[in-house]
Amino acid sequence: PPPVMDVPTLLSQAPSLVGKHVTLSCYIASASAGGAACAAFRIDDLPGSVNWNGSVPLDGTSLEAASSDKAQQMCGDTGMHPQCRAEVTGIVYDPFGDMGVQGKRNFELRDARIRWLALPEKAATAKRH
């Protein structure tokens, strides 16, 4: 199974993780047809203000369709919402590196799938006797 980490850990280790599967613990935010953000939040004294502690974009063109649809329905703004707590598994990608850009590095997850932590799992896990 891929290693599980938080967003700041991924961002600090991303150059060595390019091309590898990882699982991020985060909150889904800013979801749209173009993708979403897998965001970490700082503890904030000011309710309602955005206080991200890092964010990893989820590529919208390769994001699993059901994950994308649910994210857009529940997590379209930049807030930290309990129903948007998730684990996201995908492949670390460096789009600027692919274009030959040196220096600036932005990392994203491709082929991502969201596992919603705040939602009950389907009843299929219940055993019949």
Score class of each variant (00 low, 15 high):
Pro1Met: 07
Val4Pro: 01
Met5Lys: 09
Met5Gly: 06
Val7Tyr: 03
Leu10Asn: 10
Ser12Gly: 14
Ser12Asn: 12
Pro15Thr: 06
Ser16Gly: 14
Val18Lys: 07
Gly19Ile: 10
Gly19Cys: 06
Gly19Val: 06
Lys20Val: 04
Val22Phe: 05
Val22Leu: 01
Thr23Arg: 05
Leu24Thr: 06
Ser25His: 01
Ser25Val: 09
Ser25Tyr: 03
Tyr27Ile: 08
Ile28Val: 09
Ala29Ser: 06
Ala29Pro: 00
Ser30Trp: 14
Ala31Tyr: 01
Ala31Cys: 08
Ser32Phe: 07
Ala33Asn: 14
Ala33Tyr: 13
Gly35Ala: 08
Gly35Asp: 07
Ala36Met: 11
Ala37Ser: 13
Cys38Arg: 03
Ala39Trp: 14
Phe41Gln: 10
Phe41Ser: 08
Ile43Thr: 13
Ile43Met: 00
Ile43Phe: 08
Ile43His: 12
Asp45Val: 05
Asp45Arg: 01
Leu46Val: 15
Leu46Cys: 12
Leu46Asn: 13
Pro47Met: 06
Gly48Ile: 03
Gly48Asp: 01
Ser49Cys: 12
Asn51Met: 07
Asn51Glu: 02
Trp52Ile: 03
Trp52Ala: 05
Asn53Ile: 06
Asn53Gly: 00
Gly54Ser: 06
Ser55Gly: 08
Gly60Gln: 03
Thr61Ile: 01
Ser62Lys: 05
Ser62Trp: 00
Ser62Arg: 00
Leu63Ala: 02
Glu64Met: 07
Ala66Gln: 15
Ala66Pro: 01
Ser67Asp: 01
Asp69Leu: 08
Asp69Trp: 04
Asp69Ala: 12
Lys70Tyr: 14
Lys70Gly: 02
Gln73Val: 10
Gln73Tyr: 12
Met74Leu: 15
Gly76His: 15
Gly76Val: 04
Gly76Tyr: 15
Asp77His: 04
Thr78Lys: 09
Met80Leu: 02
Met80Phe: 08
Pro82Ser: 11
Ala86Arg: 05
Val88Gln: 03
Val88Ser: 07
Thr89Glu: 00
Gly90Asp: 08
Tyr93His: 15
Tyr93Asn: 15
Asp94Val: 10
Asp94Asn: 15
Pro95Trp: 02
Pro95Val: 02
Phe96Tyr: 14
Phe96Arg: 10
Phe96Ser: 12
Phe96His: 14
Gly97Tyr: 01
Gly103Asp: 11
Gly103Arg: 11
Lys104Ala: 14
Lys104Ile: 15
Glu108Lys: 02
Leu109Gly: 06
Leu109Asp: 01
Arg110Gly: 00
Arg110Leu: 06
Arg113Thr: 13
Arg113Gly: 04
Ile114Trp: 08
Arg115Lys: 12
Arg115Thr: 13
Arg115Val: 10
Arg115Gln: 09
Trp116Lys: 11
Leu117Ile: 04
Leu117Cys: 09
Leu117Gln: 13
Leu117Gly: 10
Leu119His: 13
Leu119Tyr: 07
Pro120Tyr: 05
Pro120Trp: 00
Lys122Met: 10
Lys122His: 12
Lys122Arg: 13
Ala124Val: 00
Ala124Arg: 13
Ala124Trp: 11
Ala124Lys: 02
Ala126Gly: 07
Ala126Thr: 13
Lys127Arg: 13
